[in-house]
Amino acid sequence: CQSRRISTETVYVEREVETIYAAAIEQMERGSYGNAADQFDEVERQHPYSEWARRAMLMAAYSNYEAGNYEEAISDAERFIALHPGNRSAPYAYYLVAISHFEQILDVGRDQQATMNALNALEQVVRRYPNTRYAQDARLKIDMTRDHLAGKEMSIGRWYLRRGFYLAAINRFRNVLENYETTTHVPEALHRIVESYVALGVDNEATQVASVLGYNFPGSEWYEDTYRLLTEEGIAIPNPDLQPDNPTYWQRLMDRLFG
């Protein structure tokens, strides 16, 4: 190839790989993760085939995560997985992708795309490496993300309920019961359905849902609210020890959390 003058401002110094790597680690220890990430990138750029390059790629991802630039962390980690799928640190790379998405979750009033990405990535960690310590943390975070998604369903359901769109509200709360039955929103969803059906005047549905709430969450404030609402409206309360036809809420909740 013909020799050409490479424009001066991009002068870069070819440095020994160990010195760059050491500089990066030193930056990291000082807590300036942003520069550390750049230094690790430098290692990989100048010595792509060295043993250090592979490690630097993962460290760059981790530094970007700590520095809060989650998009870079995700792309670095994914590049590591693409190049070294069988490597011993691959589980950590998958985990890093998952927690990077996890950190970008917005509150329930806003777009939940990051929550969905986090959920898929966390489930991948649990599926691929079930008995690593990353999977254990991932399972805990999965419950948190599912709880967050349930929170969004509830906030929209409540919005419809407050405006008197009972049908829309009921279907949103039913969605929480069907798809998020292990989340902390279940008791409230049940109570909201009781409120909706009482407001509609469909008492048999209201009493049935109330009994399931009573059976599964006897101590919860939500059951107290339901109890007060039904007595105020003079609707007979079925005795709580009525056997609901699928008693699995409580058992499934228990084994899921402490299983």
């Binding site: 009033g109 806003r110 777009d111 929209i156 919005w159 769109f165 829309a168 279907n171 949103r172």
Partner: peptide, 26 residues
């Protein structure tokens, strides 16, 4: 219509958009 999902609102709250819609789930 069984469900209306609002996506892309990284700043505006869901109900600020939903209240402008002339349709409701169901």
């Amino acid at each position: 219509i069984e469900r209306i999902d609002i996506v892309g609102n990284t700043r505006t709250l869901d109900h600020v958009i939903r209240r402008e819609l002339e349709l409701v789930e169901g």
